[in-house]
Design a protein around this nucleic acid. Structure first.
Lengths: 189, 189
DNA sequence: TGTATCTCCCTAATAGCTTTAGGCAAACGG
DNA sequence: CCGTTTGCCTAAAGCTATTAGGGAGATACA
């Protein structure tokens, strides 16, 4: 019998593709086995269990997203950097909804430590170098940006902004204008 | 044999409590049957299927949240209204994480039409009456507020802001200050 | 090249959740 | 008081997850 050539990496990549097709929640060890034309039990030599598989997909997505962010940020500053990183998140979520959903998968502390999570926080903070914010306002602003990026993208993905004017791209652009303005005029109590 | 007194309403309420205890994703027809000390099949006379149950929980949560929002908004305007509604969302999510998660459950168009969803949109728009925004900026602002509320709350719930200074309450307050300032000084291109 | 080992995928089995079909007895209406 | 309706039950099939243990291809080494 011909061996299927299963590896954790191949399973993870196929799992990510499956997530984009059917949704991250619907990623199943059984379906993955079906795609490799292999019995379900065979996957358990390469992946600890279903949670382990999902964790690996999440780590993959976080890396991909951080890589895109890093590339987009190179050589940019200020509003240019802000919109570049924001677009990276939004575009990634639209291109890879399952992978994007995977980035919200709750990671164990160990998995989180080895993830690209810190790179994401670092990138958002890097954007703020183009604005004159000092601690603790810088941290507040990091949290605001994270909230807007994630919030907007997830509402848009859920269909919240379709079927109504103005179109989503328009709102996105104007919201980024507004955030830039806010960061340049951050209020002090 | 004593009848258990199952009704769609009781199942929905119990389902909502279950969601808050174990997470919305973990709400299961089986567990619900166990809690009513009844066989699983019995639930299927009162609820069409698992999706129907989750939809009912989502509708319940949306109603509760809209009720709280309406009560909080009564007699308030401007920044006062903004923080009141924002706190309603955040507090509800912290008190009832499972129910809050349920509000993100994708509803069928019919279910969505009969839901409290429109009330939520209406409330956010009502807040903006205290600021001088005209269309389409008002819609952009509605979307921004929705994104921040949902984004912040869901990142906070996922543990994103714990274990690091400044504490989350502090950021929340300052972010609402910043949003108020932004709405009073909304940039025009 | 032959053989021993190791690796990979398999069969088999258990257990939980979902959903449908059909039955019996309690509750209710006249 | 009896017939009908209603509510919960048993039974069964299908899907997913996970573990235990086996056989055969690939590899290493003589």
């Amino acid at each position: 019998m011909v061996r299927a050539g299963l590896t954790p990496e191949r399973l993870t990549r196929a799992g990510a593709e499956l997530a984009d097709e059917v949704g991250f929640e619907q990623v199943t060890v059984s379906e993955l086995a079906r795609r490799f034309d292999v019995r379900v039990a065979s996957l358990y030599s390469h992946v600890r269990n279903s949670e382990d598989l999902k964790t690996r997909i999440a780590l993959l997505a976080l890396e991909e997203l951080a890589d895109r962010g890093g590339a987009a940020l190179a050589g940019r500053a200020g509003k240019d950097a802000l919109t570049a990183l924001a677009d990276v998140y939004r575009d990634y979520a639209r291109e890879h909804p399952g992978r994007y959903a995977a980035t919200r998968f709750p990671l164990s502390p160990e998995a989180a430590a080895g993830s690209a999570g810190p790179r994401h926080a670092h990138m958002t903070r890097a954007i703020l170098r183009g604005y004159e914010l000092t601690e603790p306002d810088q941290t507040h602003a990091v949290r605001l940006l994270g909230s807007v990026f994630h919030g907007y993208v997830s509402l848009e993905l859920a269909g919240g902004f379709s079927h109504s004017a103005p179109d989503s791209q328009e709102s996105w652009t104007r919201i980024l204008d507004a955030l830039d303005s806010l960061l340049r005029n951050w209020p002090t109590p």
